[in-house]
Design a protein around this nucleic acid. Structure first.
Length: 300
RNA sequence: GCCUUGGUAGCUCAGGUGGUAGAGCAGGGGACUGAAAAUCCCCGUGUCGGUGGUUCAAGUCCGCCCCAAGGCA
């Protein structure tokens, strides 16, 4: 018996609507696995559903302000108790989202507690990187943690720095051993057979975002003190406004850029999800997918 | 009509003094354990506008033609 239902896929593949449909049938609740929909006041650009309209409880949406720092570790801390509670209530937890790492933090026993982040150390490592370069940092890591160094490319400075941080702070190595899932699950993935279909959907969705007032939403964020340095403003559909507001690109170029970045992102998401070899893929949300869910979870 | 500058990978363009082409972006594939909508890795044969010619050898020099932009009439 599967305990958890996971619904994944690239952006604009129809996950959210499907999750709501399924939640109604299973009389359950949805746990969002989306690294950007956690932010309040960022609704249009993150394609956040309006919870009130659905009559379905969504967890982990709108949980922090756009100024806040957030990470997988925070996500995991919040998500696991919700999962446990739902299971206790005899409801099927429905995890739905496009952030692969967040989904892993639920499905697998990834332990972040022993390697908490250290901002001071991180800053000093960044300073060293700027002074001595990527190769120097990688060589350094190689001396402390050869295994990680071999896995991390020299140019992937973000990971090199994190590995150094873990090592210098705790004397530990980055833990990348393959673990067994801590929950049984059924994972459903949506991916249009034709890549062009997906890209057209993404393009249309971006156009819709602008019609729905994306520009105003971003202006309001800025007005309220959110800057482009904030982690939240890394989000596609937001970060591009920096160039627009500074006059480097016009509105047409802005839209094109957001579409472009969204398409690139969708491809990266697919790469991530493809590695789950137990995923059940569907071209799009459909009756067969619903039937599969019902047969799996509705047997009593 | 004349002059000028261009016409090179899907797009934007590099390619001193001639030796059959290379970057960025796009596209495809991949990685991913506290920024993950982030970060990073791998993949480039294309009638070098066409056609004659000079040359052992032309994207690169010369002639003519076609197309585009600008200038002069």
């Amino acid at each position: 018996m599967n305990k958890i239902l996971c619904i994944v896929g690239p952006t604009a593949s129809g996950k959210s609507a499907f999750a709501i449909e399924v939640a109604k049938q299973l009389n359950s609740e949805i746990i969002s696995a989306d690294s950007m929909q956690i932010y309040k006041h960022m609704n249009i650009g993150t394609a956040k559903i309006c919870q009130a309209d659905t009559h379905i409880k969504h967890h982990l949406l709108d949980i922090v302000e756009p100024f806040a720092e957030f990470s997988v570790a925070n996500y995991q801390t919040l998500a696991l108790p919700i999962i446990e509670q739902l299971i206790k209530d005899n409801k099927t937890p429905i995890v739905c989202g496009g952030t692969g790492l967040y989904i892993n933090s639920i499905l697998y026993p990834l332990n972040f507690s022993e390697t908490s982040k250290n901002n001071d150390l991180r800053d000093s490592l960044k300073a060293k990187l700027n002074e001595f370069g990527a190769e120097y940092m990688h060589d350094w890591l190689c001396r402390l943690d050869t295994v990680s160094a071999e896995k991390i490319h020299t140019n992937d400075t973000k990971r090199v720095l994190r590995a150094l941080e873990i090592n210098l702070n705790f004397g530990l190595k980055v833990n990348t051993e393959i673990k067994q899932p801590q929950y049984e699950y059924l994972m459903i993935g949506f991916n249009p057979n034709d890549r062009k279909t997906l890209y057209d959907r993404i393009d249309n969705r971006v156009d819709t975002m602008f019609l729905n007032g994306l520009t105003t939403e971003v202006e309001n964020l800025i007005k309220n003190g959110v800057t482009f340095d904030c982690q939240s403003m890394q989000a596609i559909g937001y970060k591009e406004f920096k160039q627009y507001f500074s006059g480097d690109i016009n509105i047409t170029e802005l839209k094109e850029l957001i579409k472009q970045h969204s398409r690139n992102y969708a491809k990266r998401q697919l790469t991530w999800f493809k590695k789950y070899n137990d995923i059940v893929w569907f071209d799009k949300p459909c009756d067969e997918a619903i039937t599969l869910v019902n047969n799996t979870f509705l047997r009593k």
